[in-house]
């Protein structure tokens, strides 16, 4: 079936079967590879994108459910005020190690900061709980969210 997908401000016509996860349309059809495959069952968060501004797991979001929605990926974050602040904080603190989960971490953190401009450590832990990092960069993720909040407040 042909589906109209609005991704990062552009409209794409994609041919995909119903039930195809948004993740694979983004990666394999539209060749945007910043969004990662980690588990396929929404338990690691590496595939997190924004759907109408809300973080969702693209491996469990199906293509037929996103028609008419705005999908935003990591590739668009530099143009987003909160996204750019999170990226800056991530670089200042060198949050990344292998980096494979970090697109998802950043997308989830941006979602959090748009809801809560100054989250506490506990609120960060709660919001970021579903984003796994096998390198265990969690101390810096927590500090990075707090640093991004500072950047945005300044």
């Amino acid at each position: 079936m042909s589906i109209t997908l609005k991704l990062n401000g552009k409209t794409h016509e994609v041919d995909a079967e119903p039930g195809t996860p948004l993740l694979w349309v983004i990666r394999d059809e539209l060749k945007l590879t910043g969004t990662k495959f980690g588990c396929g069952v929404a338990s690691c968060g590496a595939c997190t994108v924004h759907l109408n501004g809300e973080p969702v797991r693209s491996c469990q979001t199906f293509i037929e459910d996103v028609e008419d929605a705005e999908v935003t990926t990591i590739e668009k974050m530099e143009e987003d005020k909160v996204g750019a602040a999170v990226q800056q904080a991530w670089m200042e603190l060198d949050v990344v190690q292998c980096g494979y989960c970090q697109s998802g971490q950043i997308m989830n953190a941006v979602g959090l900061l748009k809801e809560n401009a100054k989250p506490s450590a506990e609120e960060i832990d709660e919001a970021m709980y579903g984003n796994a990092c096998r390198c265990a960069t969690y101390q810096r993720i927590r500090a990075g969210v707090q640093r991004a909040a500072e950047i945005l407040e300044a």
Binding site: T33, G34, K36, F37, I74, Q87, D94, V96, Q102
Partner: peptide
């Protein structure tokens, strides 16, 4: 000293083998 691979790993451009197309 900052990591040289940080910028590419925060903006989605870092190329892992999984990203080969």
């Amino acid at each position: 000293t900052r990591r040289l691979d940080s910028p590419a790993k925060v903006n989605g451009t870092a190329m892992f083998a999984m990203d080969v197309q």
